[in-house]
């Protein structure tokens, strides 16, 4: 745990000094939050059912956010070490593969979830002001669970896929591109919601949560198993 904490604190300190990463991480939540707010703002004066429908659609942005924010951070996690030439000294320390992966994942997941929740809270406050209150029947238990439980799980999924790609590709540009594609499967439940193939309900949220927990466990296991110190050292130029 000590080494994990050391790694996480150093990573955040370093990321905080990279302006592009800060701006990149802030841009998306502000954009999505703004779009969600704009949708709700358009619903002013509409019947409550129509307002609720717009509100529901706006809420989906907050499930996309935690997947998309951490991709850049996560891809940079391994590729960045290699690019700076710090990976070999780092791998020469007693840090285990698990500590390296979990540490790097936490570094990307926590800010993403934190930003998502912050923007979500700001959105709710803005909606309250614009509509004079939140439409009844919108902020249900399934939706609140989606935001509080599914968001972190989706963030972990996005991060693990990105890191898996990051550690298996030899070219940083390829890592970014593949990681972007890897996010696509996480959007499936959102598509299901948005085309109203089914309504958001507790069973569905629990089912998705369960699947994500399993997927994340498998991905973490795979990421550590497939992380080859020597391939990274000898193949990456």
């Amino acid at each position: 745990m000590h080494r994990l904490r050391v790694l996480i604190l150093k990573e955040w300190e370093e990321l905080a000094k990279i302006k592009m990463v800060i701006y990149g991480a802030l841009f998306l939540p502000l954009l999505m939050g703004g779009l969600a707010g704009f949708m709700v703002w358009q619903g002013q004066g509409l019947p409550p059912e129509a307002q609720a429908a717009l509100f529901n659609t706006a809420l989906m942005y907050f499930l996309i956010l935690p997947v998309m924010i951490p991709v850049t951070l996560a891809v940079y996690s391994i590729v960045g070490e290699k690019e700076q030439g710090t990976l070999e000294p780092l791998l020469a320390t007693p840090l285990t593969d698990w500590e390296l992966f979990v540490g790097k994942a936490v570094v990307a997941v926590l800010p993403s979830v934190g930003l998502t929740w912050t923007v979500f809270a700001l959105f709710l406050a803005a909606a309250h002001v614009m509509l004079g209150g939140i439409p009844s029947g919108v902020l249900t238990l399934p939706w609140l669970l989606s935001i509080t439980v599914l968001s972190p799980l989706l963030a972990v999924f996005g991060v693990l896929v990105s890191m898996l790609v990051s550690s298996r590709t030899s070219d940083p540009r390829a890592a970014y591109q593949f990681s972007g594609l890897a996010v696509v499967p996480t959007l499936v439940p959102l598509i299901v919601y948005s085309v109203q193939m089914t309504a958001v309900n507790l069973l569905l949220v629990i089912l998705e949560g369960g699947i994500l927990v399993l997927l994340n466990a498998v991905l973490l296991f795979l990421a550590v198993r497939l992380f080859r110190r020597e391939e990274i050292l000898t193949r990456w130029k």
């Binding site: 000590h2 080494r3 050391v6 790694l7 150093k10 300190e13 370093e14 000094k17 990279i18 700076q84 030439g85 710090t86 990976l87 070999e88 000294p89 780092l90 320390t93 007693p94 840090l95």
Partner: peptide, 19 residues
Amino acid sequence: PGFYKRLTLERNMRYFAEL
């Protein structure tokens, strides 16, 4: 030998010492 170039000398060293 690579370093975390944006961090100070002391921070780079302390990171490895702690690891």
